[in-house]
């Protein structure tokens, strides 16, 4: 099942359904309609036993988030704050999407969150760890009987293609230019 979003084309060969969730076109069947109140991930995919929530971010200056290699404390603070903001955006997109889908009665299968970001391997490794804690993944609450996310992975294009050969990913447009 082919789907396009944010300059990328995906082909989920084993999907039961796949659609743009952050849909702005009122005529489309999956029109979101609550964008003034709730954030939304870009794509939702339904598989036999899982749902995938997919968020895409193509950066023109990935190093703006690279706080680990900042050249001074001020830059580190600035980059760390951008990085934290990015993590919070990803977190609330997931949670709001979850609420929306809960109201639709569509949280009947485990949900996995995939964030496709054009950052380097070291950056996605750090974000992966932090986002997992923040969502949070698994039965995180002491008294929880259910989980709000089964898993969460942050990937770049290279890692996506290496790990998900059956969900082919193609960039449709050139990467954003550094301004």
């Amino acid at each position: 099942m082919k789907i396009e979003a944010d300059g990328f084309s995906f082909d989920f060969t084993d999907a039961l359904d796949a659609f743009v969730f952050d849909e702005k076109d009122k005529k489309k069947p999956h029109y979101h309609g609550l964008s003034q109140a709730m954030k939304a991930v870009d794509i939702i995919v339904e598989l036999d036993n899982d749902y995938l929530f997919i968020e895409i971010k193509d950066f023109h200056a990935p190093d703006d988030y690279n706080f680990q290699t900042a050249v001074d404390d001020e830059q580190k603070k600035e980059r760390r704050s951008r990085f934290n903001h990015l993590r919070e955006v990803l977190k609330y997109k997931y949670r709001d999407t979850w609420f929306y889908r809960w109201a639709e009665n569509k949280t009947d299968k485990p949900i996995r969150y995939l964030c496709l970001l054009t950052l380097d391997n070291a950056q996605i490794s750090v974000l992966n760890k932090e986002l997992r804690k923040q969502l949070p993944v698994g039965k995180a609450g002491k008294h929880w009987n259910r989980e709000i996310a089964r898993s969460c992975v942050v990937v770049n294009i290279e890692r996506w293609n290496r790990n998900f050969p059956n969900w082919q990913l193609v960039r449709l447009i050139n990467p954003p230019e550094i301004t």
Binding site: L47, D50, L52, R112, D120, N121, A122, I124, S125, N128, V137, S151, C152, V153, V154, V155, E158, R159, R162, N163, F164, P165, N166, W167
Partner: peptide
Amino acid sequence: IDDTFGDIVDREIKKSMANLGK
């Protein structure tokens, strides 16, 4: 050096996603 981080991420993905997408 980057490949080492990539390998760590791959192992995390494998652990989190089981065999989905393969």
